[in-house]
Design a protein around this nucleic acid. Structure first.
Length: 687
DNA sequence: AAGTTGACTTAGGACATAAAAT
DNA sequence: ATTTTATGTCCTAAGTCAACTT
């Protein structure tokens, strides 16, 4: 790679060695060094991330997190219901936990948790009013029942045949199972893709016995049609099941949830997010994935590492089996882990977003973003300055940071070629991903971005940039090939180290959180008008949400039935319009009538008609709003930003300010996740 | 300094269920 | 009561980032 300034080396090399198929086993049983997680530092010395770096001298922080940095934090006094970070906690015994769980946590689920859709009438635990661990531990007590394994393979009935080269062939159960994975996907376009077929066939052959292996040598000669039909029939049958049968399944699921779906962590019963082990199947990555079609193998107990406290009742492996390991690591939050065979990465069973452990982290994330708010001006002027730096690496860093800030790009770690789809983020942008236009569409210095980002979602954007940025980009691109890195002297690690120096806890992704949240707040301010009714206000909310989704490039495939449903809606609108003009006409004649007759009765009639017109107008308006909202939302996914980027306290405050029921903005799951925000934000909360 | 690994957050699509329309 | 459509849940892949290893 050639550099303008004559230097020779790069900080990254995108042609890396492939990762080994099976990663080396990692030091079993070794307890990881404590991680700086923001909960672990002694309060005053260093890094209570959300509040100590830029704290103003006049506000002395309480030792725990405050509720609102900007205003009266003085009145925020978490009760010390439970202060157990120190050794005393270690003494805590399991039976104490159980006991207190019974008192503090609901009775509902433990005792009568039947089909009741009604969940918890009992009062909720407000973990946000309690102290957090300051010693780096994530919990002191953890007990759970382990994972739920995928159901074992259920062989096909004998009449369902597989044909090879036109002739029927009975497969061994192992080979048959893998064949069924393929058969179930037959309708999918990707079973026609070369890579998918090649990967599948290769892995399938590994499951065959020697006879099968000798015979089945060409995927094209395989006929899965009967299997495919069988599964379609099965799913039809499932749909057609009687009420009672469906109810039975539902009850079984509920039973499983009650038994395995919860754990006890530090005195509280908490919901587990994913207690079911991922079933085997064919891997389908997103986008153009080199491993699509590979067999994702079945996970057995001996693959499983269980994490729980020593003094808990350990989960039992299924009869006749053993766990790979049981460990007691309270520096991590997971309950169960295993290594997945496609990428060799570790998968985890963790808690639900409503849990304390996830909630605290989420809250912390927004506090970090709010601290960025306080120093973002300084950081911005610094990177403006750095555009002029003599050092190439600093200019690159400054331009990249500008993109991350202005366009909410992701950091962009390097990836191993051939292991995953070819996608990029900011630091991994290549020359081929941008085009420079000194002038375009009447604007100067336009950069056109076109690349695939996370999940192979396309990012396409044309942005006018400062002249200096433009000139720098030209410089970075000089003498490079299209597939060379744009920022050849930069990577995420360099960038984040720099950010860390600018603000404690600052990393690239904080900019996304910050810009998303601040945008929501601004847009809400700008779009909400006091005199509008609730549906119109909600439209405004959705528009503000949408502005964020667009900024963050949260896309979705347009719903399959989009066009049709849009048409239907239009038909309704037209019908409503006709109805409106009819009503208006009637109103007019009623008025005329009243003018002539001048009696009470006809006056009444006018009133009635007027009411009708108003009602219809309102209905029409509602439909039109709905149409607009839906149209604007066609390819935009609001959920991701709502769940991951928008400080929920902004939304809560907005609801309180305009007397919008919170249910209009957050559904039940979301309200559970954001319970902390709902409880603590007032109508004047400011991000 | 680069590579590796582990833990955790963020992401879109498939599927199931509920609500609305007919 | 049945069908259609909207909404919510589940699933798990794909990122980020820091610590550890080489």
């Amino acid at each position: 790679m050639k550099h303008k300034d004559g230097s020779t080396d790069k900080y990254k090399d995108k042609h890396k060695e492939k990762r080994k198929e099976e990663k080396m086993k990692s030091l079993d049983g070794k307890i990881k060094k404590e991680k700086e997680n923001g909960f672990a530092s002694p309060p005053h010395v260093k890094s209570e991330p959300e509040d100590d770096f830029y704290h103003s001298p006049k506000h002395e922080r309480s030792l725990k997190r405050e509720r609102d940095v900007d205003d009266n934090d003085s009145e925020f006094k978490p009760k010390k219901i439970k202060t157990e970070n120190e050794k005393k906690a270690k003494k805590r015994k399991q039976d104490e936990d159980i006991k207190s769980k019974k008192t503090k946590v609901k009775k509902g689920e433990v005792t009568d948790g039947k089909k009741k859709g009604k969940k918890e009438p009992e009062e909720k635990w407000k973990w946000w009013e309690e102290e957090r661990y300051t010693d780096g531990s994530k919990w002191k007590f953890l007990e759970h029942k382990g994972p739920v394994f995928a159901p074992p393979y259920d062989p096909l009935p004998n009449q369902v045949k597989f044909y090879y080269d036109g002739k029927t062939m009975k497969l061994s159960p192992e080979a048959e199972e893998v064949a069924t994975f393929f058969a179930k996907m037959l309708d999918h376009e990707y079973t026609t893709k070369d890579i998918f077929r090649k990967n599948f066939f290769k892995d399938w052959r590994k499951e065959m016995n020697s006879e099968e292996k000798a015979k089945i040598t060409d995927l094209k000669k395989c006929n899965f049609a009967e299997m495919s039909e069988y599964f379609k029939a099965q799913s039809e049958a499932r749909k057609a099941m009687s009420k009672a049968e469906k109810l039975k399944i539902k009850e079984e699921n509920e039973r499983l949830l009650q038994e395995y779906g919860f754990c006890i962590m530090d005195n509280h019963k908490e919901r587990i997010a994913n207690f079911r082990i991922e079933p085997p199947g064919l891997f389908r990555g997103r986008g153009d994935h080199p491993k699509m079609g590979m067999l994702k193998r079945r996970i057995r107990p001996k693959d499983i590492i269980v994490n729980c406290s020593k003094d808990s009742k350990h989960p039992e492996p299924p009869p006749g089996t053993k766990w790979k390991e049981v460990r007691h690591d309270n520096k991590v939050t997971w309950l169960v882990s295993w290594t997945e065979n496609i990428q060799g990465s570790i998968k985890y069973i963790m808690l639900n977003p409503s849990s304390r452990i996830k909630g605290e982290k989420d809250w912390q994330k927004y506090e970090t973003a709010r601290r960025l708010k306080k120093c973002v001006d300084r950081i911005r002027s610094q990177y403006h300055e750095d555009w002029k730096s003599k050092e190439m690496r600093i200019r690159q860093r400054a331009v990249a940071l500008y993109f991350i800030d202005k366009l909410a790009l992701r950091a962009g770690n390097e990836k191993e070629e051939g292991e995953t789809a070819d996608t990029v983020g900011c630091c991994s942008l290549r020359v081929e991903h941008i085009k420079l236009y000194p002038e375009k569409d009447g604007q100067e210095y336009v950069v056109e971005f076109d690349f695939l980002g996370k999940d192979s979602i396309r990012y396409y954007n044309k942005v006018p940039v400062e002249k200096r940025v433009f000139k720098n980009l030209q410089l970075f691109m000089e003498n490079k090939e299209p597939d060379d890195d744009l920022f050849d002297r930069l990577n995420t690690s360099i960038l984040n180290k720099h950010l860390q120096e600018l603000m404690d806890g600052l990393t690239a992704k904080v900019f996304r959180t910050y810009n998303a949240s601040i945008t929501l707040q601004q847009q809400l301010k700008q779009l909400t008008s006091a005199d509008e009714n609730i549906p119109a206000k909600i439209l405004s909310y959705n528009r503000a949400n949408r502005a964020v989704a667009i900024l963050c490039n949260h896309q979705r495939a347009p719903p399959k039935t989009f066009e049709k449903s849009m048409q239907n809606l239009q038909t309704k609108i037209d019908a409503k319009r006709d109805q409106l003009s009819d009503a208006k006409r009637e109103l007019k004649s009623a008025k005329a009538d009243a003018k002539v007759r001048r009696d009470e009765k006809s006056k009444k009639a006018v009133e009635t008609k007027k009411k009708a017109v108003e009602r219809i107008e309102e209905q029409l308006m509602k439909l039109e709003v709905q149409a607009t909202d839906r149209e604007e939302n066609k390819q935009i996914a609001l959920g991701t930003s709502k769940l991951n980027y928008l400080d929920p306290r902004i939304s809560v405050a907005w609801c309180k300010k305009w007397s919008i029921p919170i249910e209009k903005i957050y559904n039940k799951t979301q309200r559970e996740k954001f319970a902390w925000a709902i409880d603590m934000a007032d109508d004047d909360y400011e991000f």
